[in-house]
């Protein structure tokens, strides 16, 4: 579904991604693990068209998406839940969700999908008229994911959905990610919480200072020396 081949991304002179390659097959959950500053967010921003790689190719469903404007990439079904949720704080919960459906013309189906999102996240329905900025961190994460679902993702990019959440909530969010995947959405999940991420992912990549250092099935990664020491607390 997605083939990233040898991309380099720069911020001015900072070489943030150095020849990164990765692929995601339809129906999978693939996780990207790495420490602070490894380049995870940079990779997702490149996939969603906010950044442009200097070299390398990105193919999505058989065609190149390098250089496409972000709105075209959204239209093609790559939906990015950014780091730190980035909900529109001064707009209501429902307005945020409707923004997720910005490009859609099928207003009947949008209504149904809104109901579906409220079913998945009953909290959001209770708070639909509330300003999003006043939601708790966990609720904002639900909103960010709900908003992405409103865009009808084929490939969902999630940037650290567990960040700043209590363990019980992390559990809930990860269960929901799994459900979304079961419903047919492919997921690329960026996480620092390697333990949780590998528990739901089919495969994973580990990225360090802009390079993929190891990849494999979740099982292989859970058993690898490097991953255990650096990312699973050495257990």
């Amino acid at each position: 579904m997605l083939k990233v081949n040898d991309i380099d991304v720069y911020y001015g002179h900072i070489h943030a991604l150095k020849g990164v390659s990765l692929n995601v097959e339809e129906g999978e959950i693939v996780t990207l693990i790495g420490a602070n500053g490894a380049g995870k967010t940079t990779l997702l921003n490149t996939l969603s068209g906010l950044l442009r790689p200097k070299n390398g190719t990105i193919e999505y469903m058989g065609k190149s998406i390098v250089g496409l404007p972000a709105q075209q990439i959204v239209r093609d079904g790559i939906i990015h839940v950014p780091e730190g949720r980035r909900v529109f704080a001064e707009m209501t919960v429902e307005e945020n969700l409707l923004l997720g459906a910005f490009l859609r013309k099928d207003s009947q189906q949008v209504k149904k999908d809104l109901e579906k999102v409220y079913e998945i996240f009953p909290r959001l329905e209770e708070r639909k008229k509330q300003q999003s900025g006043t939601l708790s961190g966990g609720e904002q994460q639900m909103l960010a994911i709900g908003r992405a679902l409103m865009s009808k993702p084929k490939l969902l990019l999630l940037d650290e959905p567990s960040m700043g959440l209590a363990p019980i909530l992390v559990q809930t969010i990860f269960e929901i990610i799994q459900e979304i995947n079961n419903d047919g959405t492919t997921v690329l999940l960026v996480e620092q919480n390697a333990h949780m991420a590998l528990s739901i992912a089919d495969r994973g990549y580990v990225i360090e200072t802009g390079k993929v250092v190891i990849s494999g099935t979740s099982k292989e990664l859970q058993e690898s020396e490097l991953v255990r020491e650096a990312y699973l607390g050495g257990a």
Binding site: S48, A70, Q71, V74, I79, F88, M91, L99, G100, L103
Partner: peptide
């Protein structure tokens, strides 16, 4: 709605498919 979204956060607006 797009105007308000862009005025709050341009990149997040782009991720909604807003031009």
């Amino acid at each position: 709605r797009a105007m308000r979204a862009v005025s709050y956060d341009k990149d997040a607006a782009r991720l909604m498919g807003i031009n």
